[in-house]
Simulated scan of single mutants.
Amino acid sequence: MIDSKPKIIAIAAVSGGGKTTITSRLNQVLNNSKALYFDDYNVEGPEDIIDWVERGADCNEWSIEPIVTDVNSLINSSDVRYILIDYPFSRLHHDLKTIDLTVFVDTPLDIAMARRLLRDFRNINTEVIMDELSNYLSRGRIGYESMLKTTKPNSDVVIDGALHTDEIIKLILDEINKTES
């Protein structure tokens, strides 16, 4: 049984930046932790992401109520010490300001795009991949750059996403230990 409120840790990065991998690994190494993954939720957001970015990328346009509900449920749980959230908005969304530590995994955009292609387009024909790359260059990259201007500067810790996963985990664990000292 845990005596105090769980520590809420948010992991942010661009798509392909390592949020899910880092959150999963942290969940494996931290005792009494529970991980929540943004992509597991059916959250409502803007229909046109590029238009949303061009209008300022206000994360409050996203309805994250299902995530907030699960976080609050875990806060009230007596056996969770850490709540880990794979979550792109850091502390910027008005409905989830209770985050104790925000980490931005600053993955170079070329690495993030390569990871995304390997993850999402493994069994897709070349024409679809070429269309995706063309879309990224013509419109999509500004979404990635937006995170670097909004989420990254609003994070407590920024870690180089080109580092090996084990090194990233070690750096995050060091930050957690600092906040608990």
Rank of each mutant, 00 (worst) to 15 (best):
S134Q: 11
A114S: 09
V103T: 03
R116T: 08
P108Q: 05
I159F: 02
I9D: 00
F38L: 00
R25Q: 12
A162E: 07
A35R: 05
T107S: 10
I50L: 04
L84Y: 08
D39L: 08
N31Y: 10
M113D: 02
S15K: 07
A162K: 13
I67G: 00
V128H: 06
S78V: 11
L171E: 12
I159K: 00
D100C: 09
E127K: 15
L74R: 01
A35K: 04
S33F: 05
N32M: 10
R115Y: 08
R122W: 06
N60L: 03
R115L: 10
L36S: 03
D86G: 07
L36R: 03
N31S: 14
D95W: 04
K170Q: 15
L30N: 04
F121P: 01
I2M: 15
I111V: 12
E145I: 07
L173W: 01
P153I: 01
I75W: 10
I67A: 07
E175P: 02
I172F: 03
L84D: 01
I2L: 12
I159M: 07
L173D: 05
P6N: 04
R141H: 10
P6A: 03
L163H: 09
S15M: 11
P66R: 12
S15D: 09
A13T: 03
N42W: 01
K152T: 06
I50F: 06
N177W: 06
E44T: 15
D100K: 00
D106M: 02
D40L: 10
A112C: 06
N72E: 14
K5P: 02
T107H: 03
V53Q: 10
S4T: 15
I8F: 06
I169H: 07
S138N: 14
A10D: 07
